[in-house]
Amino acid sequence: MAKKKTRKPSTRKGNKKKQVVDFIKQIIVTACVVIVCFIAFWIGYEFIFPQDASSIGKKLESVEKGTEKNSGYPDDLYADTETDPANTDVPVISEPETIPFSMPDEVEMPRMESDRPEEIITRESFAVSYNRTYRIPNWVAYELTAQEAGSNKSSRSNKFVPDPELDGTPDTRDYSRSGYDRGHMAPAGDMKWSHQAMKESFYTSNICPQDHYMNQGIWNDLENKCRVWAKKHKSVWVVTGPVISKKMKRIGDTGIGIPEAFFKVLMYSTGTTLEGVAFVLENRNYEDSDLKKYAMPIDEAEKLTGIDFFHQLPDAVEDKMESELHLKKWGL
């Protein structure tokens, strides 16, 4: 009887399991290689391009200050940036195209910070705060435009008369033989644009006793400068008047006070910012008529006069403009 052939057990199943294990090992090895390569690449990048922690701090600080571009704002807000020459790493936002507020009507009208008598009259050409105690103005305020400064419509009147709207303003004869000029606060040279404006400038409510050489010299130079500035900057706002004190001497039958000094405060707009300057001049002859020597920030003039100038401006704008003095902006 023939013997049956015995079959060897099949190895297909074992081979299949081995292939699966080998495939999983290959995946793990490949993943480890990728991770090692990534770590090596990152270490090499950090070595070649180290990150400056201080520069990050600067950027964060600039974002807080609003000078760094932030995705939370529209792109065009930072479209016009310029470089700060003192630090080329920090971008500086350029000035806006216009001042960020509407200029108040009659922004030139000041207010008294002391208890001083005043009667305010608004005319075609200027506003005047009249001091009945001393028979002179506390201040005169107006805007002088380039067109007005360049006009020759009306010639000089030279006819000083009492103010028809105010009782008790001086007669021109009160100045006779006093040794003082009838000094304009709002000058006739600024009023050539209107016959009425010229006439109003000769009301004695707009006049103060002024040293002759001052009136014809440095004060006249300053008045001429105001017209130059008005033409150059389209307009200037002017507040001018005497520095009033309790120890003033007097002239004439009506007892006109003789100021020890005079002030002239000016402001113009560049379209983006406001520039201001003040001048305080003693009531005397000046051999040196260099106006730059007598220019000061408006804040200083406020302390000397007791008058709050341009108070209708937003506080931040007023504070900045009145505390700074940019003589080059005024050609001084």
Rank of each mutant, 00 (worst) to 15 (best):
F160W: 12
V140C: 00
L327S: 04
I256C: 05
E324L: 12
D75L: 05
V63H: 11
I218L: 03
T270S: 00
G66S: 11
T11E: 03
T11I: 04
D319K: 14
K199T: 13
R177N: 15
S323D: 05
D190I: 03
K264Q: 14
V239P: 00
S151H: 10
M267S: 07
V20E: 07
R182Q: 09
M321A: 04
L166V: 05
V280Q: 04
F279E: 09
S10N: 06
P104Q: 07
E108N: 07
K4A: 09
D290A: 01
K249R: 12
V161D: 08
V34C: 14
K249S: 12
P314A: 01
E61T: 14
D89S: 10
Y175K: 06
L313W: 07
T98G: 04
E108T: 06
T11D: 03
M185T: 04
F310M: 00
K303N: 08
T122S: 12
M198F: 01
K17M: 15
I27A: 02
D190K: 03
G57P: 03
T273N: 06
A230W: 05
T98I: 09
I251S: 02
T169E: 00
F263T: 01
V280L: 05
P91M: 05
N285L: 02
S155Y: 10
K232L: 05
L222N: 05
I24A: 09
L332G: 04
Q19I: 15
S176V: 15
E275Y: 08
G179R: 14
W42C: 08
V317E: 15
E61D: 14
N224P: 09
R173P: 09
P137C: 00
A149Q: 05
N158M: 13
M103S: 04
K59H: 13
V239E: 00
V239Y: 00
K320V: 15
K231A: 13
A186S: 09
R111V: 08
N158H: 15
D211C: 00
T81H: 02
M248G: 09
T169A: 01
N70E: 10
D319S: 14
G276F: 03
S151D: 12
E148A: 01
C208Y: 04
N224H: 14
K16A: 11
D319Y: 11
Y203L: 00
P96D: 12
S289V: 04
M214D: 00
H212W: 02
A295W: 06
M214V: 00
I207D: 01
A186P: 02
K249N: 12
L281Y: 07
I93N: 10
R135G: 02
G252K: 11
S151A: 13
E124S: 11
K5A: 02
R284L: 05
F101G: 01
E113W: 10
F49P: 11
E282H: 05
I136P: 01
R173M: 15
K5R: 01
Q210E: 07
L332W: 08
A278D: 02
S62R: 14
K8D: 14
E68I: 06
S129R: 00
E64M: 14
I48H: 15
T11P: 02
Q312L: 09
E300R: 11
P110K: 01
L222M: 08
I256L: 07
